[in-house]
Computed example of a mutant assay.
Amino acid sequence: MWIKMLPFIIIMIVSMLLTISANSWFTAWIGLEINLMAMIPVLILTKGQESPEPAIKYFLIQALGSSSMVFFILLMKTQLFNNPVTSLMLSSSLLLKSGVAPLHFWFPSMIEDSSWMACFYLMTVQKIAPITLMVTNLPSSIILASAVLSVVVGSLGGLNQTSLKKIMAYSSITHLGWILSSLHLNNYLFMMYNLTYWMLVLSIINPLDKLNLMNLNQITNMNSNMFIKSLIMFNFLSMGGLPPFMGFLPKLLVIQAMIQNSMSLISSLMVIMTLLTLFYYIKIVITIMTDQPPFNKTNNPTIPMISNYPMMVISTSSIGLFPLASLLFYSF
Protein backbone atom coordinates (compact mmCIF):
# COMPACT_ATOMS: atom_id res chain seq x y z
CA MET A 1 0.00 0.00 0.00
CA TRP A 2 2.82 2.41 0.85
CA ILE A 3 4.51 1.66 -2.48
CA LYS A 4 1.34 2.65 -4.34
CA MET A 5 0.98 5.90 -2.43
CA LEU A 6 4.65 6.91 -2.41
CA PRO A 7 4.63 8.70 -5.83
CA PHE A 8 1.56 10.72 -4.85
CA ILE A 9 3.07 11.65 -1.49
CA ILE A 10 6.23 12.86 -3.24
CA ILE A 11 4.11 14.90 -5.68
CA MET A 12 2.23 16.42 -2.72
CA ILE A 13 5.47 17.52 -1.08
CA VAL A 14 6.93 18.89 -4.33
CA SER A 15 3.73 20.82 -5.15
CA MET A 16 3.69 22.21 -1.62
CA LEU A 17 7.25 23.50 -2.07
CA LEU A 18 6.28 24.91 -5.48
CA THR A 19 3.44 26.89 -3.94
CA ILE A 20 5.54 28.18 -1.06
CA SER A 21 8.35 29.35 -3.37
CA ALA A 22 6.04 30.81 -6.06
CA ASN A 23 6.61 34.43 -7.03
CA SER A 24 3.26 34.84 -8.82
CA TRP A 25 -0.33 33.91 -8.16
CA PHE A 26 -0.44 31.75 -11.27
CA THR A 27 2.44 29.56 -10.10
CA ALA A 28 0.91 29.30 -6.65
CA TRP A 29 -2.40 28.22 -8.17
CA ILE A 30 -0.66 25.57 -10.29
CA GLY A 31 1.03 24.20 -7.16
CA LEU A 32 -2.29 24.04 -5.30
CA GLU A 33 -3.95 22.19 -8.18
CA ILE A 34 -1.14 19.64 -8.42
CA ASN A 35 -1.39 19.16 -4.68
CA LEU A 36 -5.13 18.55 -5.00
CA MET A 37 -4.70 15.99 -7.79
CA ALA A 38 -2.08 14.11 -5.74
CA MET A 39 -4.22 14.02 -2.59
CA ILE A 40 -7.26 12.42 -4.21
CA PRO A 41 -5.52 9.06 -4.96
CA VAL A 42 -4.14 9.06 -1.41
CA LEU A 43 -7.69 9.39 -0.06
CA ILE A 44 -8.80 6.45 -2.19
CA LEU A 45 -5.80 4.15 -1.73
CA THR A 46 -5.36 4.47 2.03
CA LYS A 47 -5.99 1.33 4.03
CA GLY A 48 -9.47 1.01 5.47
CA GLN A 49 -11.13 3.39 3.04
CA GLU A 50 -14.41 1.80 1.97
CA SER A 51 -15.95 4.49 -0.25
CA PRO A 52 -14.78 7.32 -2.51
CA GLU A 53 -16.98 9.83 -0.66
CA PRO A 54 -14.06 11.62 1.09
CA ALA A 55 -12.23 12.04 -2.22
CA ILE A 56 -15.33 13.48 -3.90
CA LYS A 57 -16.02 15.81 -0.98
CA TYR A 58 -12.42 16.98 -0.87
CA PHE A 59 -12.37 17.59 -4.63
CA LEU A 60 -15.56 19.67 -4.53
CA ILE A 61 -14.40 21.84 -1.62
CA GLN A 62 -10.94 22.41 -3.06
CA ALA A 63 -12.31 23.07 -6.55
CA LEU A 64 -14.68 25.69 -5.10
CA GLY A 65 -11.79 27.32 -3.26
CA SER A 66 -9.53 27.27 -6.33
CA SER A 67 -12.14 28.70 -8.70
CA SER A 68 -13.04 31.49 -6.30
CA MET A 69 -9.35 32.23 -5.74
CA VAL A 70 -8.70 32.57 -9.47
CA PHE A 71 -11.78 34.75 -9.88
CA PHE A 72 -10.77 37.20 -7.15
CA ILE A 73 -7.16 37.27 -8.34
CA LEU A 74 -8.38 38.35 -11.77
CA LEU A 75 -10.51 41.03 -10.12
CA MET A 76 -7.52 42.30 -8.16
CA LYS A 77 -5.50 42.63 -11.36
CA THR A 78 -7.99 45.17 -12.67
CA GLN A 79 -7.80 48.65 -11.20
CA LEU A 80 -11.59 48.90 -11.04
CA PHE A 81 -12.04 46.09 -8.51
CA ASN A 82 -8.79 46.37 -6.58
CA ASN A 83 -10.20 47.22 -3.14
CA PRO A 84 -10.19 45.79 0.41
CA VAL A 85 -13.41 43.86 -0.26
CA THR A 86 -11.74 41.89 -3.06
CA SER A 87 -8.78 41.16 -0.78
CA LEU A 88 -11.17 39.93 1.90
CA MET A 89 -12.91 37.63 -0.59
CA LEU A 90 -9.54 36.26 -1.72
CA SER A 91 -8.70 35.50 1.89
CA SER A 92 -12.01 33.63 2.23
CA SER A 93 -11.03 31.27 -0.61
CA LEU A 94 -7.70 30.51 1.09
CA LEU A 95 -9.48 30.03 4.42
CA LEU A 96 -11.80 27.55 2.74
CA LYS A 97 -8.97 25.58 1.16
CA SER A 98 -7.03 25.32 4.43
CA GLY A 99 -10.01 24.65 6.71
CA VAL A 100 -9.33 27.65 8.94
CA ALA A 101 -12.22 29.11 10.95
CA PRO A 102 -14.75 30.47 10.14
CA LEU A 103 -14.72 28.37 6.91
CA HIS A 104 -13.92 25.11 8.69
CA PHE A 105 -17.36 23.52 8.31
CA TRP A 106 -16.20 20.83 5.87
CA PHE A 107 -13.11 19.72 7.77
CA PRO A 108 -14.54 17.70 10.72
CA SER A 109 -16.93 15.76 8.48
CA MET A 110 -14.12 15.19 6.00
CA ILE A 111 -11.89 13.76 8.73
CA GLU A 112 -14.76 11.62 10.03
CA ASP A 113 -15.20 9.91 6.64
CA SER A 114 -11.49 9.38 5.91
CA SER A 115 -9.09 6.69 7.06
CA TRP A 116 -6.62 7.45 9.83
CA MET A 117 -3.58 7.84 7.57
CA ALA A 118 -5.53 10.08 5.20
CA CYS A 119 -6.43 12.14 8.27
CA PHE A 120 -2.71 12.59 8.95
CA TYR A 121 -2.09 14.09 5.51
CA LEU A 122 -5.17 16.29 5.73
CA MET A 123 -4.14 17.65 9.13
CA THR A 124 -0.48 18.25 8.30
CA VAL A 125 0.92 18.40 4.75
CA GLN A 126 -2.20 19.81 3.10
CA LYS A 127 -2.29 22.83 5.41
CA ILE A 128 1.15 24.28 4.66
CA ALA A 129 0.64 25.71 1.16
CA PRO A 130 -2.62 27.65 1.67
CA ILE A 131 -1.69 29.11 5.06
CA THR A 132 1.69 30.21 3.66
CA LEU A 133 -0.13 32.06 0.89
CA MET A 134 -2.41 33.62 3.50
CA VAL A 135 0.39 34.92 5.69
CA THR A 136 2.54 36.22 2.83
CA ASN A 137 -0.23 37.96 0.86
CA LEU A 138 -3.02 38.96 3.22
CA PRO A 139 -3.26 41.72 5.88
CA SER A 140 -2.04 40.82 9.35
CA SER A 141 -5.40 41.73 10.88
CA ILE A 142 -7.12 38.96 8.90
CA ILE A 143 -4.41 36.46 9.84
CA LEU A 144 -4.62 37.18 13.57
CA ALA A 145 -8.43 37.20 13.54
CA SER A 146 -8.48 33.82 11.79
CA ALA A 147 -5.89 32.43 14.21
CA VAL A 148 -7.85 33.47 17.29
CA LEU A 149 -11.15 32.29 15.82
CA SER A 150 -9.61 28.92 14.93
CA VAL A 151 -8.42 28.43 18.50
CA VAL A 152 -11.86 29.35 19.84
CA VAL A 153 -13.76 27.12 17.40
CA GLY A 154 -11.41 24.18 17.84
CA SER A 155 -11.53 24.40 21.63
CA LEU A 156 -15.32 24.66 21.88
CA GLY A 157 -16.15 22.30 19.02
CA GLY A 158 -14.42 19.27 20.49
CA LEU A 159 -15.98 19.44 23.95
CA ASN A 160 -19.06 17.31 23.24
CA GLN A 161 -17.51 14.90 20.73
CA THR A 162 -17.20 11.15 21.27
CA SER A 163 -15.69 10.33 17.88
CA LEU A 164 -11.90 10.22 18.08
CA LYS A 165 -11.59 11.48 14.51
CA LYS A 166 -13.71 14.54 15.21
CA ILE A 167 -11.75 15.21 18.38
CA MET A 168 -8.56 15.13 16.33
CA ALA A 169 -10.19 17.35 13.67
CA TYR A 170 -11.12 20.08 16.14
CA SER A 171 -7.73 19.71 17.78
CA SER A 172 -6.18 20.29 14.36
CA ILE A 173 -8.23 23.47 13.95
CA THR A 174 -6.93 24.69 17.31
CA HIS A 175 -3.33 23.93 16.38
CA LEU A 176 -3.87 25.59 13.02
CA GLY A 177 -4.54 28.84 14.86
CA TRP A 178 -1.21 28.49 16.66
CA ILE A 179 0.54 27.63 13.39
CA LEU A 180 -0.85 30.77 11.77
CA SER A 181 0.38 32.84 14.69
CA SER A 182 3.82 31.26 14.59
CA LEU A 183 4.16 31.84 10.84
CA HIS A 184 3.02 35.44 11.31
CA LEU A 185 5.81 35.96 13.86
CA ASN A 186 8.79 34.25 12.20
CA ASN A 187 9.71 31.22 10.12
CA TYR A 188 11.76 29.53 12.84
CA LEU A 189 8.75 29.21 15.15
CA PHE A 190 6.66 27.98 12.24
CA MET A 191 9.07 25.17 11.37
CA MET A 192 9.54 24.14 14.99
CA TYR A 193 5.83 24.10 15.74
CA ASN A 194 5.07 22.14 12.57
CA LEU A 195 7.72 19.48 13.18
CA THR A 196 6.54 18.98 16.75
CA TYR A 197 2.90 18.90 15.73
CA TRP A 198 3.49 16.44 12.90
CA MET A 199 5.34 14.08 15.24
CA LEU A 200 2.57 14.27 17.84
CA VAL A 201 -0.20 13.67 15.30
CA LEU A 202 1.61 10.67 13.82
CA SER A 203 2.29 9.32 17.33
CA ILE A 204 -1.43 9.38 18.12
CA ILE A 205 -2.84 8.35 14.74
CA ASN A 206 -0.49 5.39 14.27
CA PRO A 207 -1.71 3.35 17.29
CA LEU A 208 -5.33 4.36 16.69
CA ASP A 209 -4.98 3.10 13.12
CA LYS A 210 -3.37 -0.16 14.22
CA LEU A 211 -6.14 -0.78 16.73
CA ASN A 212 -8.93 0.46 14.45
CA LEU A 213 -10.29 2.70 17.19
CA MET A 214 -12.94 5.18 16.05
CA ASN A 215 -14.97 6.02 19.14
CA LEU A 216 -14.20 7.04 22.68
CA ASN A 217 -16.13 4.07 24.03
CA GLN A 218 -13.83 1.63 22.24
CA ILE A 219 -10.85 2.76 24.30
CA THR A 220 -12.28 1.00 27.35
CA ASN A 221 -11.95 -2.32 25.47
CA MET A 222 -8.17 -2.18 25.14
CA ASN A 223 -6.57 -5.30 26.58
CA SER A 224 -3.12 -4.02 27.42
CA ASN A 225 -0.78 -3.39 30.30
CA MET A 226 -0.51 -0.07 32.07
CA PHE A 227 2.74 0.90 30.37
CA ILE A 228 1.24 0.96 26.87
CA LYS A 229 -1.87 2.74 28.10
CA SER A 230 0.36 5.33 29.74
CA LEU A 231 2.25 5.76 26.48
CA ILE A 232 -0.96 6.63 24.62
CA MET A 233 -2.10 8.80 27.50
CA PHE A 234 1.10 10.87 27.49
CA ASN A 235 0.80 11.40 23.74
CA PHE A 236 -2.64 12.92 24.18
CA LEU A 237 -1.48 15.12 27.05
CA SER A 238 1.46 16.27 24.96
CA MET A 239 -0.91 17.13 22.13
CA GLY A 240 -2.82 19.32 24.56
CA GLY A 241 0.34 21.25 25.41
CA LEU A 242 0.51 20.20 29.05
CA PRO A 243 3.94 20.83 30.62
CA PRO A 244 6.46 19.22 30.84
CA PHE A 245 5.59 17.24 27.70
CA MET A 246 7.02 17.98 24.28
CA GLY A 247 3.89 19.71 22.97
CA PHE A 248 4.28 22.46 25.56
CA LEU A 249 7.60 23.79 24.21
CA PRO A 250 6.45 25.24 20.84
CA LYS A 251 3.42 26.86 22.48
CA LEU A 252 5.69 28.46 25.08
CA LEU A 253 7.96 29.88 22.39
CA VAL A 254 5.00 31.27 20.43
CA ILE A 255 3.59 32.88 23.59
CA GLN A 256 6.95 34.50 24.37
CA ALA A 257 7.26 35.83 20.81
CA MET A 258 3.72 37.23 20.90
CA ILE A 259 4.37 39.02 24.19
CA GLN A 260 7.59 40.51 22.79
CA ASN A 261 5.59 41.81 19.81
CA SER A 262 2.98 43.52 22.03
CA MET A 263 0.32 40.87 21.42
CA SER A 264 -0.35 40.00 25.07
CA LEU A 265 -4.14 40.22 24.80
CA ILE A 266 -4.28 37.86 21.80
CA SER A 267 -1.88 35.41 23.41
CA SER A 268 -3.89 35.41 26.66
CA LEU A 269 -7.12 34.65 24.79
CA MET A 270 -5.45 31.85 22.85
CA VAL A 271 -4.01 30.33 26.04
CA ILE A 272 -7.36 30.45 27.83
CA MET A 273 -9.20 28.81 24.94
CA THR A 274 -6.45 26.21 24.44
CA LEU A 275 -6.89 25.15 28.07
CA LEU A 276 -10.36 23.99 27.10
CA THR A 277 -8.82 21.46 24.72
CA LEU A 278 -7.30 19.75 27.74
CA PHE A 279 -10.85 18.91 28.81
CA TYR A 280 -11.46 16.45 25.99
CA TYR A 281 -7.88 15.17 26.14
CA ILE A 282 -8.28 14.48 29.85
CA LYS A 283 -11.62 12.81 29.04
CA ILE A 284 -9.71 10.40 26.81
CA VAL A 285 -7.06 9.90 29.50
CA ILE A 286 -9.69 9.10 32.13
CA THR A 287 -11.28 6.61 29.76
CA ILE A 288 -7.91 4.92 29.26
CA MET A 289 -6.94 4.80 32.93
CA THR A 290 -10.25 3.77 34.51
CA ASP A 291 -11.30 0.15 34.38
CA GLN A 292 -14.89 0.27 33.18
CA PRO A 293 -16.94 -2.59 31.75
CA PRO A 294 -16.67 -2.64 27.97
CA PHE A 295 -19.60 -1.24 26.04
CA ASN A 296 -19.33 -3.86 23.34
CA LYS A 297 -17.95 -7.30 24.16
CA THR A 298 -17.81 -8.35 20.51
CA ASN A 299 -15.46 -5.57 19.45
CA ASN A 300 -12.44 -5.86 21.69
CA PRO A 301 -9.27 -4.61 19.99
CA THR A 302 -6.01 -5.67 21.56
CA ILE A 303 -2.57 -4.13 21.69
CA PRO A 304 0.41 -6.47 21.30
CA MET A 305 2.70 -6.85 24.24
CA ILE A 306 6.10 -5.18 24.27
CA SER A 307 8.78 -7.58 23.11
CA ASN A 308 11.77 -5.44 24.04
CA TYR A 309 11.33 -3.70 27.39
CA PRO A 310 14.89 -2.25 27.64
CA MET A 311 14.52 -0.48 24.29
CA MET A 312 11.21 1.07 25.34
CA VAL A 313 12.54 2.16 28.74
CA ILE A 314 15.52 3.88 27.07
CA SER A 315 13.29 5.48 24.46
CA THR A 316 10.96 6.90 27.13
CA SER A 317 13.66 7.98 29.59
CA SER A 318 12.93 11.57 28.67
CA ILE A 319 9.35 12.79 29.04
CA GLY A 320 9.59 14.71 25.80
CA LEU A 321 10.33 11.53 23.82
CA PHE A 322 7.06 9.71 24.53
CA PRO A 323 5.68 10.43 21.04
CA LEU A 324 8.89 9.12 19.46
CA ALA A 325 8.71 5.95 21.55
CA SER A 326 5.13 5.40 20.48
CA LEU A 327 6.13 5.72 16.83
CA LEU A 328 8.96 3.21 17.26
CA PHE A 329 6.74 0.67 19.00
CA TYR A 330 3.79 0.78 16.61
CA SER A 331 5.93 0.85 13.49
CA PHE A 332 7.74 -2.43 14.10
Rank of each mutant, 00 (worst) to 15 (best):
M168I: 12
A169D: 06
A169G: 05
Y170R: 08
Y170P: 04
S171L: 07
S172Y: 06
S172D: 08
S172N: 08
S172L: 10
I173V: 12
I173M: 05
I173P: 00
I173L: 07
T174Y: 08
T174A: 12
T174L: 14
T174Q: 12
H175Y: 10
H175E: 09
H175I: 09
L176R: 06
L176K: 08
L176D: 06
G177V: 01
W178N: 03
W178K: 03
W178A: 04
I179K: 09
I179W: 13
I179A: 15
L180I: 08
L180R: 02
L180F: 01
S181V: 11
S181G: 10
S181F: 03
S182Q: 05
S182I: 03
S182F: 03
S182C: 08
L183V: 01
L183I: 02
L183M: 14
H184A: 13
H184W: 11
H184I: 05
L185A: 00
L185R: 04
N186W: 03
N187Y: 11
N187E: 12
N187T: 14
Y188S: 15
L189E: 00
L189T: 01
F190V: 01
F190Y: 13
F190T: 01
F190W: 12
M191E: 12
M191S: 13
M192K: 12
M192W: 12
M192G: 11
M192D: 11
Y193A: 00
N194V: 13
N194Y: 15
L195C: 12
T196D: 07
T196L: 10
T196Y: 04
T196K: 05
T196C: 15
Y197R: 06
Y197K: 07
Y197C: 09
W198N: 15
M199K: 10
M199I: 15
V201Q: 13
V201W: 10
V201M: 15
V201R: 05
V201T: 12
V201C: 13
L202D: 09
L202V: 06
S203G: 09
S203V: 03
S203K: 07
I204L: 10
I204P: 02
I205K: 02
I205H: 02
